Simulated assay, not measured.
Amino acid sequence: MQRRNLILGAVAVAGLGGWALTRTSATPGSTAIVGAANAQSSDADVDTSTITEMVVGDADAPVTIIEYASFTCPHCAAFHQGPFKQLKAEYIDTGKVRFIYREVYFDRPGLWASMMARCGGEAKFFGIADLIYKGQSDWVRGGDPATIVEGLRKIGRLAGMDNDTLNACLQDADKAQTLVAWETENREGDDITSTPSFIINGTKQSNMSYADFKTLIDAELGS
């Protein structure tokens, strides 16, 4: 893969000074990771097998859906506050759909949110993700990076994590580098150019209404 310069390190307030919160690109993978240390690495040098896939649903479900989403994407928030809840009740909880969530990093706050959501492990991930999306309009508009990170910490505390745990997760530079390499590997492998995007039993689909989701899923189920 193409060699990239990754700015890695702490996301604690002390490591955020001097960084302007700007989006340099409207395309996935343009994340600049805030931190105190710089490192130059190739994606090929990073072992992405350490990143856990976040999955909900029966492992033997006949339909697998992979969602590619950004925690700073309003359309992704709308999906998770509406259609996803219907999808979970009707298809995931009933053993018909296995659902995999994969993060896309448009910007630094999206990466920070991802690191925080993963801080609670698999058991808490989807619950924390729901809180992140529910409060997106508040924390993402925090302005300066320190305020945004504090908004994410508040969500983490609501999920039962203490500040020491949250800070350790947010300051994990190695995890940040590995997540970015993992995101690039997945996004480029599935040719993801917008969020939310979905892979339904191997076929890529763009964002859609829940009615259209039902049609596609029912077709895969043969019903």
Rank of each mutant, 00 (worst) to 15 (best):
F213M: 03
F125M: 09
F126E: 14
S49F: 01
K175P: 02
P109F: 05
F125G: 11
L221N: 01
T215E: 14
A123D: 15
D138C: 01
N163E: 15
L111S: 07
T24P: 03
A36M: 09
P196D: 11
I199T: 06
A12D: 13
G127T: 14
A113H: 04
K154N: 13
A59C: 06
D45E: 13
K204L: 12
V63L: 03
S30C: 07
Y68V: 00
G142P: 06
Y105E: 09
I7V: 12
A59R: 07
R157L: 02
Y133I: 04
R3E: 09
P109I: 10
D190M: 11
C73H: 03
C169W: 06
S194W: 00
K175D: 15
A77N: 05
F198P: 07
A123I: 00
D58C: 11
T193R: 08
I148D: 06
G151Q: 10
V149C: 03
R23Q: 12
E183W: 04
E183L: 06
G57Y: 03
K124W: 03
T184E: 08
L8F: 08
K175Y: 15
L152I: 10
D174Y: 06
G35V: 03
D43W: 14
D58A: 14
D45V: 06
Q2W: 02
A69E: 04
Y101Q: 08
D58T: 11
D190G: 03
E188V: 08
W112Y: 11
E220D: 13
E67T: 10
A123C: 06
T22N: 10
A173M: 05
T147H: 05
T193A: 08
G35I: 02
R102V: 00
A10H: 09
M161N: 04
Y133S: 05
F84N: 08
